[in-house]
Design a protein around this nucleic acid. Structure first.
Length: 515
RNA sequence: GCGCCCAUAGCUCAGCCGGUAGAGCAAUCGCCUUUUAAGCGACAGGUCGCAGGUUCGAGCCCUGCUGGGCGCACCA
């Protein structure tokens, strides 16, 4: 990778051109350009019936291809809408020709001229006026594209190094315009969710990112320090506990879309900061939430992708509601015959070792963790089509309300699609004494070495003591949702600037303080 | 955290059994006024990720380090 401070001979050549431009009073960095058409609009403005006298258009964009033939130059200009060919002719441009000779690939230009169709058949701008808008002093790592007769586009060479693509995301997008489509869909997904909730009387709120205590999930936090207060603060791992405080306060229906932060490993499905959607609705239970999630997902898929059936990694997924519902206990029993509520832990452990899990790791499992492992090795892999898994054992869910029909269970569901969890919801626990007891249990696990167990949030318990109405709530991982909808297998591909180690070692000394 | 793999020109890559480094494209210069992976000719471009080691000799073998990818673990 080229160091940001070093210059290659290619860059020196561009700086030399910059100097030559300035010598003839052409500014390499203009202030604005009044365009009349986007590239795609200009192409639509062409009509073969007009013969050679097409409409005059002004377009602005980056030079994505440049083919000089001496006294003529063909180029392709690329803007947000696509690309259009430009035809520069020395006779036509007269004095401006000296600028054309100093253009490089990647420069931003504005051109105007009439449309015509070349001998080869491509609708092209017959450039009459050209302005340099921004000189590019560093060549983009672009490949060459070839459009085959059948319309397919083939890329020759190009930016393929994954490290360089994530580190220089700006170059990645500049060279791979099709990647931007993922983020258009991402924006539509979030806009749809917001409209969906607004329409149902939910209030969008913002709760603290910096928190004196963290909670609402099982995860290790990032820590930082407040100077004036002289105290450690945590970056939130979930929005849950603050949103439920707002339910106590009488807001009744609230939601938040924001970043959570978890200090854990990074891989294809985990980025240290990620986008979470959570909503809470007073006087609703988890079945009310389930029906809303179903409506949200099917509506979103229909609107953002057009249609309810989509192929993902070769599997046809059908988002037509209603989605299958299966209980955690019965689902596992159907798949492997185990009844996790009555089976002894030893039976569960031997099931796991039978599935190839290392005996040492299995021996360390107990309680909720053990049940979770059994689930992952039995029911979860079978959940390809959208499926709600309901009624998780109590040990797995310290913030969920006990099941009204079975005290061993909680009223909780998770939504799975294509083997991944998309949503996690419950009838919220609102008995303050029960909540305190479960926190205390978490603290014991914490003392026993589980760094991801909850802290005791006494202020939250106090809020519950004032009385939180029956409430249903849900958390939806937006990044994974976007991964599903755009068929991306890495979370990095749906995050604009995914987390990376700093380049080289020269930044290492400035690493942030650990709380 | 563990395992496997990768790092050579601006980009994409080759480099055999260890013998002082190569191609295409991009750049630069010349020719070319409807090309489109334009074409033809010329000329440049390298601390082979970094540091040690083995060797008469290392891009290639060994060790360590850095960065990255994949898998596992962690991750409700």
């Amino acid at each position: 990778m080229t160091d940001p401070g070093e210059r290659t001979y290619v860059e020196e050549a561009r700086r030399d051109k910059r100097a030559r431009l300035e010598a003839i009073a052409i500014t390499p960095f203009a202030y604005r350009y009044a365009r009349t058409h986007l590239a795609a609009e200009a192409l639509l403005a062409w009509d073969d019936a007009l013969g050679d006298h097409g409409p005059t258009v002004s377009v602005a964009g980056r030079l994505a291809a440049l083919r000089s033939q001496g006294k003529t130059v063909f180029a392709h200009l690329e803007d947000v809408s696509g690309r259009i060919q430009l035809y520069f002719k020395r006779d036509v441009l007269a004095a401006a020709w000296s600028l054309v000779e100093l253009l490089d690939l990647d420069d931003h230009v504005g051109v105007s001229g009439r449309l015509f169709r070349t001998r080869a058949g491509e609708v092209t701008i017959w450039v009459e006026r050209v302005e340099l808008l921004t000189k590019s002093l560093r060549p983009l790592p672009r490949g060459k594209t070839e459009t085959l007769p059948d319309g397919r586009t083939v890329l020759h060479g190009g930016l393929t190094d994954p490290e360089l693509r994530y580190r220089q995301r700006y170059a990645d997008f500049a060279v791979h315009p099709e990647l931007r489509q993922i983020f258009r869909i991402r924006a539509r997904v979030i806009a749809f969710a917001r409209r969906f909730l607004d329409d149902r009387g939910f209030l969008e709120v913002e709760t603290p990112v910096l928190q004196p205590l963290y909670g609402g999930a099982a995860a290790r936090p990032f820590t930082t320090r407040h100077r004036a207060l002289d105290m450690p603060l945590y970056l939130r791992i979930a929005d849950e506990l603050y949103l439920k405080r707002l339910i106590v306060g009488g807001f009744e229906r609230v939601y938040e879309i924001g970043h959570d932060f978890r200090n854990e490993g990074m891989d294809r499905t985990h980025n240290p900061e990620f986008t979470m959607l959570e909503w809470y609705q007073a006087y609703a239970d988890y079945i009310d939430v389930l029906e809303m999630v179903q409506e949200l997902l099917s509506g979103m898929v229909q609107e953002c992708l057009g249609g309810l059936q989509h192929e993902r990694h070769g599997v046809r997924l059908d988002f037509t509601p209603p989605y299958r519902r299966v209980s955690f206990v019965a689902g596992i029993r159907e798949v492997c015959g185990l009844d996790v509520l009555t089976a002894s832990e030893d039976v569960l452990r031997s099931f796991l070792t039978g599935r190839g899990e290392p005996p040492d790791a299995v021996r360390a499992l107990s309680g909720g963790r053990l049940l979770d492992e059994v689930f992952k090795h039995s029911l979860e892999p079978t959940l390809v089509q959208p499926t709600f898994v309901l009624d998780y054992p109590k040990a797995l869910s310290p913030l969920a309300k006990p099941h009204r029909d079975d005290a061993r269970l909680t009223e909780r569901f998770e939504l799975f699609v294509n083997g991944t969890e998309l949503a996690n919801a419950f009838s919220e626990l609102n008995d303050p004494d029960d909540q305190r007891a479960r926190f205390e249990d978490q603290v014991r696990q914490r003392d026993a070495g589980d760094e991801e167990a909850h802290q005791l949030d006494a202020d939250y318990v106090r809020a519950l003591e004032y009385g939180m109405p029956p409430t249903g709530g849900v958390g939806i991982g937006v990044d994974r949702l976007v991964m599903l909808l755009t068929d991306q297998s890495s979370i990095r591909d749906v995050i604009l600037f995914p987390a990376m180690r700093p380049e080289g070692d020269r930044h290492r000394a400035t690493a942030a303080d650990e709380g």
